[in-house]
Simulated assay, not measured.
Amino acid sequence: MMNDKNLATNCYYDRYFDTQAVKVLPGQYFATHENTMIVTVLGSCVSVCLRDRLSGIGGLNHFMLPRDSSAELNSPIAASGRYGLYAMELLVNHLLKLGACRSRLEAKVFGGGQVLKHMNFVNVGQRNVKFVMEHLRNELIPVLGKDVLDIYPRKVYFFPQSGKVMLKKIHSLHNTTIIDREKAYMHEIETQPVAGEIDLF
């Protein structure tokens, strides 16, 4: 069963791109079979753009692994690994529900920037990227492109039907919205357990 509380609901019309759009915030995801642009802004978090290469059904998630000092990331019982798996399967399951075929999924990966300065000691961005790349490799989902790590936040525009991604690196922050949002998200995922179980296909 889907966990709809994680489904992005911030829909709007983007005049610049002349298209319907959905903004995905930290902890959310969105999947669609329609001609909709999916937008997110990443700091230390990562997003995976997933798409069925034949049908054009696609989606994007936005997540961060919590700090996990109890186990190594590659341990199957690591809390952070469970969280990452949950975030990935929420997106995959919704794509399959819309009619995507798992064997035709392809990915593009973004984020993992070192923007949360006080969290450098846990390598938040690096751990997020490492998890995502290992997970996609294990699931036999090819990664067609990526832009990860570095020190800059990124704004991602994903067009699922064509598979096109437009990326803007944010070299100068005019306010602390991105960092504040990720700090609040980090606190939330470290104080609340992953909600419920999901059925894996």
Rank of each mutant, 00 (worst) to 15 (best):
R104S: 12
L85A: 05
A100F: 12
L85E: 13
Y83L: 15
H62E: 03
L105D: 00
N61M: 08
A78D: 08
D68T: 10
A71I: 04
F110G: 01
G81W: 10
P76Q: 06
N74H: 11
R67M: 08
L95N: 02
K108Y: 09
F63L: 09
E72W: 11
V109Q: 01
A87R: 10
C101K: 13
Y83V: 01
M64V: 03
N93I: 06
H94R: 14
N74R: 09
L85S: 12
M64A: 15
M88R: 00
A100V: 05
A71V: 11
L105P: 00
A79P: 10
A87M: 15
S80P: 08
I77R: 07
P66I: 06
Y83D: 04
I77V: 13
H62F: 14
E72A: 15
V109P: 02
Y86L: 05
Y83A: 07
P66M: 03
G99P: 07
S103G: 02
Y86D: 13
N93K: 09
M64I: 09
S103D: 14
G111M: 01
R82T: 01
L90W: 05
K108M: 14
V109A: 06
R82K: 14
A100T: 07
S75T: 13
L91A: 08
L98H: 11
A100Y: 08
N93V: 03
G111D: 02
E72D: 15
A78E: 03
S75R: 12
Y83P: 00
C101M: 12
A78T: 09
H62R: 06
R102W: 11
N93M: 12
F110C: 07
G111P: 10
A71M: 10
S70P: 03
S103A: 12
C101L: 14
A71P: 09
L105Y: 07
A107F: 07
S69Q: 12
N61G: 09
F110M: 06
M88E: 00
H62Y: 05
R104N: 11
S80C: 13
F110V: 02
P76S: 09
A107I: 11
F63Y: 15
G99I: 12
M88L: 13
H62S: 12
L105N: 00
N74I: 14
L96R: 11
A71W: 08
C101S: 04
K108P: 01
S69W: 09
A87K: 04
R104P: 02
R82D: 05
E106A: 15
G99E: 02
S80A: 15
R82N: 14
E72I: 15
L90R: 03
C101G: 06
G81L: 11
P76L: 05
P66K: 13
R102C: 01
A107M: 08
E106S: 08
N74V: 13
A107V: 13
A100N: 06
A79T: 13
N61I: 04
S69K: 10
P66C: 04
L73K: 06
I77P: 01
N93F: 11
R104I: 05
N93E: 15
G81I: 04
M64Q: 09
E89M: 15
L98E: 08
N74T: 14
S80E: 10
K97P: 00
C101R: 11
A100E: 00
M64W: 02
N93C: 14
F110T: 00
P66E: 06
F63I: 07
L90Y: 03
E72Y: 15
G81T: 13
